[in-house]
Write a protein that binds this DNA or RNA. Structure first.
Lengths: 367, 367
DNA sequence: ATTAGCACTTGGGTAATGCGAGTGCTAAAA
DNA sequence: TTTTAGCACTCGCATTACCCAAGTGCTAAT
């Protein structure tokens, strides 16, 4: 009895693999006769039946009903995937398509992720997923104020990574370009790096003093800043191409679809999932992660599989892209695709160093 | 035979209304016996049968099969909705909820619409819809460049309505704050108001000359500007809460869901729909629009109804919000809700005058 | 250890059946 | 002329019975 390292004989191993692959391909339970005739085995169907019985006892296979072929269990898929993981690699053509599709979007991370989710879906014909976790507690690292008209100004809030948010502030009294400059200077010198709870009344009063005569701008601006920061910290989840799953029989019932569609609402759970699987990190932390069935605790994904990889910038996790599909997913393609996609994004966003806060910069040049 | 103005007797009219309302409520074909016993009529079921037969001949009702009750046709719904339209008004509590939910989001139009779509869905328990058409051909009306570090700057592109987009530009050679200012000045004086095809090689060369020694920034910036402008002009469609429709039996089949999910892809068609129903304008142009079944030509919505209202700023249509649901939709609630929602947004975004282009402003103050 | 043969299980598809709801029509009543 | 009661008829739908195919487990022979 030749044993492989996993406690399975070579033949059992091969049977398991073949069952998984056939089931992934056809979606139908596979029986001993089919296996026997597929050419990979020299023994008879009876022998295979015996082996399958054992694989079932070991928890790798199960039958939907007595008298139907076998279907892989979660454990079965897990075995298959693990033995596969060592040796995936992307096809050159896919890598090319991904690169060219991404290159067009030399935009902010948010947009890149949206695009990535769409891409993941269209390349695999499953559902695409992109996640951006909240960007730490840190607020912005610098502010600018641009005078748009006599009664409105544009507040530019700049993140350490160079991206920015803008908001329009309208006032009831006229403001000048000098007011705007003063406001920006005040914000930069007083609240950069502070969380909302650190902004105290005395501080506010000092800022308003600094900004006189346009002191009314201060509270508007600060409120606006923390509203925006909260939004930013909220994280985000993009799901694309749920409709592609409709053509797989495992999603023909309404409930499973409802679950997937509701996924956008439970974005916190998804964010946790990514964060958590990141922590188990170590060397494997950079790999493509695969969660099959109940391995994740989102019951909406209970009958699905999730393949994803984190996107990093400068060592920090800034997002993740992946694919949601049926448990019988074409793992080889999907794994390599997700890998390429994440790598492509990593490459695109580079690992630029972070920006300094405004203080240092401002001191030379503006005044 | 008392005739109302529509060519229906009063009794026929009442029967039609009752059928529609009952079908909306229960989703089941309604028969003569049920009507007879509902209390609204003094005649017998046989009489009602005769009337219903006539209503069917006139095209207001139909039977799914011989020997089932009647169901309203598109025309039937249309009759019902039209006779209803004069007299809808929002419940005070709904208006309150909408206002308070919107007030929290004093953000850009894009975000407001996203929020509106979500709100529409949750308030009606149908699918929410928000549409933002492309913002004309016009590019931006002003640019600013903020120096972030020695090798990156933030390009701020400002729309006439005061909103702005930002993009990060990275270079291989060092740049100074003066370079950034020069770039902004050049952009503002040369390409404000120009469409991409109007940017000629000679113009580019002149701009690069003006920007020396940082002339390499010019082409990056211009490219970036037109990429962003294209994106902006593309319009956008938000669809939220498709899963809510799953609980209605008319969407229990996979195809109808697939159609709705695919709706995001065919955003152009939706944009057209809004634009077009706007054009028939006149006085009715400001009303809530209702498209039932094939009244719109999106076959994905063939078995659905669409209720929406445009959102305007300063007379121009800048978006639309609405609801997608089954044809047997609770029109009274939905109409009033959509109306309130659109009004709320209109109020929120105000009709601020548009900004002037940068030239005038720049001449006093900066230099 | 492998194989052939056989009885057994079971899901799914198909045809037959009965039921119920609702209609259309006709003839009588108002 | 309008309304009503009565009745035969039509279908959709659920239930039942039934058969078939696929696949298994087990036993006995190789």
């Amino acid at each position: 009895m030749k044993e492989a390292q996993n406690g399975l004989t070579n033949r059992q191993s091969l049977i398991l693999r073949t069952v998984v692959e056939s089931y992934i391909e056809n979606g139908e339970p596979v029986g001993s006769k089919f296996l026997c005739e597929c050419g990979r085995f020299t023994c008879s169907s009876a022998t295979i039946r015996n082996e399958m019985a054992e694989l079932e006892a070991l928890g790798y296979l199960e039958q939907p009903h007595t008298s139907s072929g076998r279907v892989p269990t979660e454990l079965g898929y897990r075995f298959y995937v693990d033995s596969l993981l060592e040796s995936y690699n992307s096809t050159a053509s896919d890598v090319e398509r991904i690169k060219s599709a991404l290159k067009e979007k030399r935009a902010e991370l948010d947009q890149i992720l949206t695009q990535a989710s769409r891409l993941a879906s269209s390349l695999t014909n499953y559902t695409g997923l992109a996640v951006r976790p909240g960007q730490g507690h840190g607020a912005f690292c610098r502010y600018e104020a641009i005078c748009l008209s006599s009664r409105s100004l544009l507040l530019v809030m700049i993140n350490p990574d160079g991206s920015a948010k803008t908001r329009n502030l309208r006032t009831d009294v006229d403001i000048t370009k000098e007011d705007a400059d003063t406001l920006a200077r005040t914000l930069n010198s007083c609240i950069v790096g502070l969380s909302a709870s650190e902004v105290t009344l005395p501080l506010m009063m000092r800022m308003e003093e600094m900004c006189a005569p346009a002191s009314h701008l201060v509270s508007m601006a600060v409120k606006c800043i923390y509203e925006t920061a909260i939004e930013k910290n909220d994280g985000d989840v993009r799901i694309d191409g749920v409709n592609r799953l409709l053509e797989y029989p495992e999603y023909s019932d309404t409930e499973s679809i409802a679950g997937l569609l509701g996924l956008g609402d439970s974005k916190n759970a998804l964010l946790d999932l990514v964060k958590e699987s990141e922590e188990l990190g170590g060397e494997a932390g950079d790999d493509v992660k695969i969660l099959i069935g109940s391995e994740n605790r989102l019951d909406a994904l209970g009958s699905s599989a999730l393949v994803f990889k984190t996107v990093k910038r400068g060592g920090r996790v800034v997002g993740a892209v992946g694919v949601i599909g049926p448990r019988r997913m074409k793992y080889q393609n999907v794994i390599s695709m997700v890998d390429s996609l994440a790598n492509g994004i990593n490459e695109l966003i580079g690992d630029d160093m972070l920006l300094p806060t405004a203080d240092t910069e401002r001191n030379n040049g503006n005044e």
